[in-house]
Computed example of a mutant assay.
Amino acid sequence: MFNRREFLKALGVGTSLLLWPSLAAADSPLGKRRLVVVLLRGALDGLAAVPCDSDPAYQRLRGSLASQEGVVAPRLDGTFSLHPSLAFCHRLYQAGDFAVVHACGLPYQGRSHFDAQECLENGTATPTGSRTGWLNRAVGSLGDTQGLGLTSSRPLLIRGPAPFATWSPSAHGTTQPSLAQRVAALYRQDPRLGPVFERALAMQQMAPTDIDSGGLLKDTLAAAAQFLAAADGPQIAMVEDDGWDTHARQNAVLSRKLEQLDSGLAALHGKLGERWQHTAVVVITEFGRTVAVNGTGGTDHGTASCILLAGGAIRGGRVHGQWPGLARLRDDRDLIASQDTRAVLKGVLRDHLGLDLDPLAEQVFPDSRQVGPLAGLIG
């Protein structure tokens, strides 16, 4: 007999998969509604993704980061524009399916990637506030709901007792049919592992076959769309991407990374089909970056950044929240956080998924009753 580790290894030659109790989603309280959370690790420079280029201090403070010869940033409103690499997002903005919440930050205002990511994922005010993730707790609070993390590991954001599977593509291909048949025969009579294996095979059949094994963000978001579009698939998905720590050559690095994000959202939009109209996408990062450029053409760890929202369920075509401006900075270097990141997440979870204020304030984001949901994000 295989032990559990050998069983899961044989099961997932091409797939990393931690299974939920059931693939049937017909009685889900969410109905057609879907949520995608995209976590950008490394700290996205919100002032580069969504420049406040009409602010009198912007050009002076940003220096070479603000002036790219021959590059025209598409306008959002009288204050903000969008990075030129986010061309598809701008079209979504014009169609009312894309929005921005600028100047968002965490209660933790240190400059450690690790501590900030812990806070962002555990949903509390401190890095050690919880060993489970707010997205897992949200799934648990909803009941009869399934989550899927398209990750090679199991990040804190989705850890916890609620049903949350993980899936990731592999460069080695999918499980060989002969191996699957042998394992199926081996465990057919096993009351514990038999049903697990059957669900794993069903999940693998749902998995997309046209993704690039390079693991690009575009391919991962396309895969997420295919899972979410399935009638018996998950209702909530989490995707992560790293490489956003732009200490040097930021203009070149961010142009490439934002283009990948833009292409990924385009792929998600295309493969979701009619489900796009019932989907909210939330793009978050652990903190922002310094307003001024450093000596290597990049930026250092800061405080506030922006949250990007997309999907047919979003009240788009606008920049939400309060804008603090650049006349005053935190520690004379950082954009001030006017919005608590948890307020934005609460607003989406309440108005899109229907979570009540009590579970949001006590279970999903513990001890956060003083942080009210940001209204008006869902159309």
Rank of each mutant, 00 (worst) to 15 (best):
Q235R: 07
L258D: 08
L23P: 06
H172A: 11
P169M: 06
L39C: 11
Q204L: 08
D351H: 15
M203G: 05
L86F: 02
V344M: 12
Q277P: 05
V291T: 09
L150E: 00
M238N: 02
D334S: 07
R333F: 09
T175D: 04
R318F: 08
V253K: 08
S263I: 05
I211F: 14
A25R: 15
G297Q: 03
Y93L: 03
E69H: 11
A162R: 01
G264E: 06
S178Q: 13
L65I: 06
A48P: 01
G149H: 09
C52M: 13
C104Q: 00
G372W: 14
S64A: 15
A95H: 12
R315H: 13
R137A: 13
A225G: 00
F197E: 01
M238I: 05
L360N: 02
L329F: 14
S305E: 04
Q204H: 07
A266I: 10
L179K: 02
P191W: 05
L186F: 11
S54T: 13
F2T: 06
A25D: 14
A229Q: 03
L11R: 12
R256N: 10
H352A: 12
I314G: 02
P163F: 03
R199A: 03
A138F: 13
R289W: 10
A180Q: 10
T174K: 05
K346D: 08
C89E: 00
G215K: 13
G42K: 14
L308A: 02
D232S: 10
F365V: 10
Q339T: 15
H278R: 11
L329T: 12
Q339C: 14
L8I: 13
Q322I: 09
A10P: 05
S54K: 13
G105R: 00
G264K: 04
G105E: 00
V38Q: 00
E69Y: 09
Q339H: 15
A180D: 03
R75T: 10
Y58D: 01
A99D: 02
D367T: 06
I211W: 08
A66N: 02
A95K: 14
C104L: 01
F287A: 01
D262M: 15
Q363G: 03
F365G: 04
P29I: 11
F98W: 06
V72H: 10
A337L: 12
A48L: 11
E198F: 05
M203Q: 04
A266R: 14
F227R: 00
L39D: 04
A230S: 01
D351G: 04
K32N: 14
L374N: 01
L8A: 12
G140S: 03
G354H: 10
E198C: 05
G143H: 12
R318L: 12
M206D: 02
G63R: 07
V283Q: 00
D27C: 11
R182K: 08
D351R: 05
T126L: 13
N136C: 13
G302D: 05
V281C: 07
T290L: 07
R4E: 12
T220C: 09
